[in-house]
């Protein structure tokens, strides 16, 4: 029985297999519409989420399965003090697979150590969010045709942005990737990502505070939100939240086939005037998220 807690739990071959499966689902949805008939997904969301929870639920419904669960900790027994481990053992009696989001880092790992069914980490605080990474990889593959040979700029909150850390980690497996890290000095990428990921795998990267100066070089621009919930101090959040706002003006020097990605939700960091630009991929990313989760559920449930 396999769980997915960290993107590094998957080999490059397994990631490629999931991407291929997702593309096959996109091409032939009817072939998969009853694959999980009689199976149940438990969505245990101890923290609010729109996209991730609905995406998991839509994925399971489109595979012919059913869904049960809760969408906030107040409506679960954790409000009475139940441990994550006990919740996981209990839910194992009712469902075939768990998708868990929790504000504390490592909670889904604890669940996977005790559950008798596969556990998918649907986000644990500012730590890991592997299905977002798979979503991002599928989007890059579909937009660029390959996961090798491109220049990607990560912009915004690179300190707390778990999607950025996780995607950088995954990209180390692919060839000829160049990375620009664009952030205010207070929100730069953590040292350990530089030491233990970028330097260790010899990835070419450059840090800058100036988005417009690197714009012409980018094949992909990955925007992020400055997340209020990651700050202990409201004043710091207010000061930094408007650091980078992408507007049509800033795109004048960008490549014609640039792919603009964002894990969403956005606040104001991408102007809505860009939504109709063909280079905007963030809503396609949302849709890709459903397909890659379908592929993942099939894999972890060992459904052919």
């Amino acid at each position: 029985m396999r769980s997915l807690i960290d993107i590094n739990d998957l080999t490059k071959e397994e990631i490629d297999e999931l991407i291929n499966k997702a593309e096959d689902i996109i091409a032939n949805p009817e072939k998969y519409s009853q694959k999980c008939k009689g199976k149940k997904l438990a969505t245990l969301f101890f923290e609010p989420s729109t996209r991730t929870r609905l995406s998991f639920e839509a994925a399971m419904y489109e595979l012919g399965g059913n869904v049960l669960g809760f969408s906030e900790s107040a409506s679960s027994s954790s409000a009475k003090g139940e441990s994550v481990a006990d919740t996981a053992v209990t839910v194992s009696c009712y469902a075939d697979i768990i998708a868990m989001r929790h504000p504390k880092e490592g909670a889904p790992l604890v669940a996977s150590m005790k559950a008798s069914i596969p556990v998918i980490n649907a986000g644990d605080g500012g730590h890991n969010h592997p299905t977002q990474t798979l979503t991002d990889l599928l989007t890059i593959k579909r937009e660029k045709g390959s996961l090798d040979n491109f220049c990607i700029g990560f912009c915004g909150d690179l300190k707390f942005g778990r999607t950025v850390h996780s995607l950088i980690n995954a990209l180390t497996r692919y060839k000829n990737i160049k990375i620009y890290l664009i952030s205010p000095s207070e929100l730069v990428i953590p040292e350990y990502i530089k030491d233990e990921v970028l330097d260790r795998y010899n990835i070419e990267y450059h840090e800058t505070t100036d988005l417009e100066s690197v714009m012409p070089e980018l094949d992909i621009l990955y925007m992020t939100r400055v997340q209020r919930e990651r700050f202990f101090n409201e004043a710091d959040y207010i000061r930094l939240k408007d650091s980078y706002v992408l507007t049509p003006n800033k795109l004048t020097s960008a490549k014609k086939d640039l792919a603009i990605m964002h894990p969403l939700p956005r606040v104001n960091e991408i102007s809505t005037a860009i939504d109709d630009d063909p280079r905007a991929c963030y809503f396609k990313q949302v849709l890709n998220g459903k397909y890659i989760r379908m592929a993942l559920i099939l894999k972890l449930l060992e459904v052919e």
Binding site: S83, V84, A85, K104, E105, G106, V110, G125, G126
Partner: peptide
């Protein structure tokens, strides 16, 4: 000692560290 870690709220959990470097 990370206040965001699950071990900060679940006292029964063993504190396990892995050699990464």
């Amino acid at each position: 000692k990370n206040p965001r870690c699950i071990t900060s709220i679940e006292q029964e959990l063993p504190h396990i560290f892995r050699l990464t470097d």
